[in-house]
């Protein structure tokens, strides 16, 4: 056999092997977390808040962290949504005119997208200190919203860009304003993509720990106001794992299962939604 055929065969094997490593590592991560965490997961973990001395092995669960994370991620996503949708709409040609501003915005969003979440956290904490405020739910929500902003906006802009120009032109030729066209034509056509963007950002928000480490605080209670400190799932995992007690560390595995299930659910919902709503799109 020729050398070049052998070379091709060798590289093909290497490529398939690499792909197996990538897919295999995903399965390994999910598999090991489930294998270690599922046996420890109990109803109490899901339905009770942490009791006094929870981190020394006393009873209770992490309901406070689950609810806290949902509050944080929901609040952050809603806040980010209003900013992102505005920016994504504005980056259309009829608003920004394809000008320098939109190129600059895209570059800024890309840089923000690449900014480590610990930097958001440190910045958020600096601002909190400047205003003499303590870590709270609202501070966590704002930092998460900033973290999610570039992710959501870029995802939304990608789909809005794909809306056919003819569709918009039909709307304009009927005398519709830019706002009417954007809300009734563009957003309907882009709906599955917009929802995907929101869900991806939500997933990123609910899983992020470094940004809320100093801004949302940590507590054993479920927050009752925006100015209370709040627990969160990622930090619950981190703190439980950090204790010297094996029983508490095992609860970290169970907490990771809960977080992983939420992430998997988001991922599956994203697929289903985009399949369901793609039916109503004009191709």
């Amino acid at each position: 056999m020729e050398f070049r055929r052998i070379e091709e065969a060798v590289f093909k094997v290497l490529m398939i092997f690499s792909l197996l490593i990538v897919v295999g590592s995903l399965l390994a991560v999910i598999g090991i977390i489930l294998w270690k965490g599922l046996p420890v997961l109990s109803i109490d973990m899901l339905t009770k808040t942490a009791e006094g001395g929870y981190y020394f092995g006393k009873g209770g669960g992490i309901l406070n962290a689950i609810i806290g994370s949902l509050y944080l991620a929901l609040g952050g996503t809603i806040l980010a949504f209003f900013l992102s949708i505005g920016i994504a709409f504005y980056l259309q040609k009829e608003y920004s005119g394809g000008t320098r501003l939109s190129n600059l915005t895209r570059l800024c969003l890309d840089i923000l997208w690449g900014t480590p979440s610990i930097v958001y956290g440190a910045f958020g904490f600096t601002v909190l200190m400047y205003f003499q405020m303590r870590a709270s739910l609202i501070a966590g929500i704002i930092v998460l919203a900033l973290l999610e902003l570039p992710i959501m906006t870029r995802a939304m802009e990608e789909v809005i860009k794909t809306v056919p120009l003819e569709l918009k032109e039909v709307s304009y030729s009927l005398g519709a304003t830019r706002l009417e066209t954007t809300l009734r034509v563009v957003s309907k056509q882009a709906l599955p993509g917009l929802m995907t963007g929101v869900l991806i950002a939500f997933g990123r928000g609910i899983g992020d720990a470094a940004s809320i480490l100093f801004t949302a605080g940590y507590t054993d209670r479920i927050p009752t106001s925006l100015f209370d400190a709040t627990a969160s799932l990622p930090l619950a995992i981190f703190f439980q794992l950090g204790t010297p007690f094996p029983a508490v560390q095992q609860k970290a595995y169970a907490s990771a299962v809960i977080l992983l299930v939420i992430i998997l659910a988001i991922s599956i919902t994203t697929r289903l939604l985009s399949r369901k709503y793609t039916k109503y799109i004009i191709k």
Binding site: V22, S25, L26, A28, V29, I32, I33, I200, G203, R204, I206, G207, D208, A209, A210, P234, L235, I237, F238, L241, A252, Y253, A256, L259, L260, I263, L264, I266, S267
Partner: peptide, 14 residues
Amino acid sequence: DLLAGIPSVVYGLW
């Protein structure tokens, strides 16, 4: 996509 979506604490725990 899922690999990108898994939170970093979960990777850390793994």
